[in-house]
Amino acid sequence: MDLSTELTGKTALVTGGTKGAGKAIAERLAQAGAQVIISARNAATDTQPNLHFIAADLGTATGAAHLVSEIKASYGGVDILVNNLGGSDTPGGGFSALTDEHWLQTLQANLMAPVRLDRALLPYMLERGAGVIIHISSIQARMPLYESTLPYAAAKAGLTNYSKSLSNEVAPKGIRVLTVSPGFIQTTAAVAFIKQLAEGAGQTYDEALQSLLHTLGGIPIGRPAQPEDIAEFVAYLVSPRAAYLTGTEYVIDGGTLPTI
């Protein structure tokens, strides 16, 4: 099979597709021949010209509705949906440092955004009896860091559970739904997160990084994931080569999780 054309004729949406793993996934799907739409609140200055950008704040119902409206008007729908948007910017300090607003903002971006997009874009897939949805979760769904990312971990646990349930519902109708749960990915957002941890704990960047790695139990493979590591696997999962895979969570963490 020619990997440069295996997604030819497919339209894909990658949320949070302007940076980090999302950008790498979008570029990899385009390399495989897909027409790729990316969304984020703001356009990146280095976005590839073959990626079709739509501005949307998916942390709100209005933003999700705007994105869906634009997609339906210009493309009809999508064959591949990669719900990659996510992240945490809540303060450290455990449960007592978090307000209702912190919780709601995190749940909106990390759980409700995928739920809304799935609900709006699944009918197009169901009409055709084919489609793939990827939910980018996190190993924190199983390995929460209460001192730094409590709402994020809870939201990702909900996303992983929801993804399995959705797969059970739509797999008989030809739609594959899968979860990819990365560990520590070396991105600019990860660097900013570690700086935030350092400031909160009165540590240097290196001290905060080592503290985070210690909390995770280390990375046996010896390095963080690169965005391209995640992108390559997602490209496989959405391709015809993975036609029998659905309802499964795939962990990409370099061996970080200590359990099977």
Rank of each mutant, 00 (worst) to 15 (best):
D206A: 12
G217R: 00
T215K: 13
T204N: 06
R176Y: 04
R241D: 10
E207N: 05
L213V: 12
R241W: 10
K173A: 06
A201D: 10
D229Y: 14
H214Y: 01
F233A: 10
G183L: 05
E228G: 13
S167M: 03
Q226H: 14
Q186R: 12
E232K: 15
S239F: 09
A189N: 04
L209M: 13
P227F: 11
E199F: 01
G174C: 02
P227G: 11
F233V: 13
P182D: 05
G217N: 02
L178H: 04
G202V: 07
Q210I: 00
Q226Y: 11
E228F: 07
A189C: 01
N168Q: 14
A242F: 12
L178E: 06
A171V: 07
H214V: 00
S163W: 03
S211A: 15
A198W: 05
I185K: 03
E228A: 15
K164P: 00
Y162D: 04
A198V: 11
I185G: 02
T179N: 14
V234M: 08
T179E: 12
K195F: 01
D229P: 11
K195A: 12
G222C: 06
T204A: 06
S163Y: 05
F233I: 09
K173E: 09
S211M: 03
E207R: 03
A198G: 10
A243Y: 07
Y236S: 07
P172I: 00
A243N: 12
A242C: 08
E228C: 12
A171C: 02
I219R: 02
T187M: 07
K164H: 13
Y205Q: 07
I221M: 13
A198E: 08
A198R: 08
E169T: 08
P220I: 05
Y236L: 15
Q196G: 13
I221G: 01
Q210G: 07
V234W: 05
T179Y: 05
Y162L: 14
Q203C: 00
Q196R: 15
L213N: 04
V238L: 09
K164M: 13
P224M: 09
T188G: 10
F193Y: 14
P220W: 02
N161W: 08
K195S: 14
A189V: 02
R241K: 15
L245W: 10
F193R: 11
L166Q: 01
E199H: 09
K195V: 03
N161E: 10
S167A: 15
G218R: 01
K173N: 03
L216I: 05
S211P: 00
S181Q: 11
K173D: 06
L178M: 15
N168W: 04
L178A: 05
Q186G: 01
D229L: 12
I185Y: 02
G222Y: 02
E169W: 00
P172G: 03
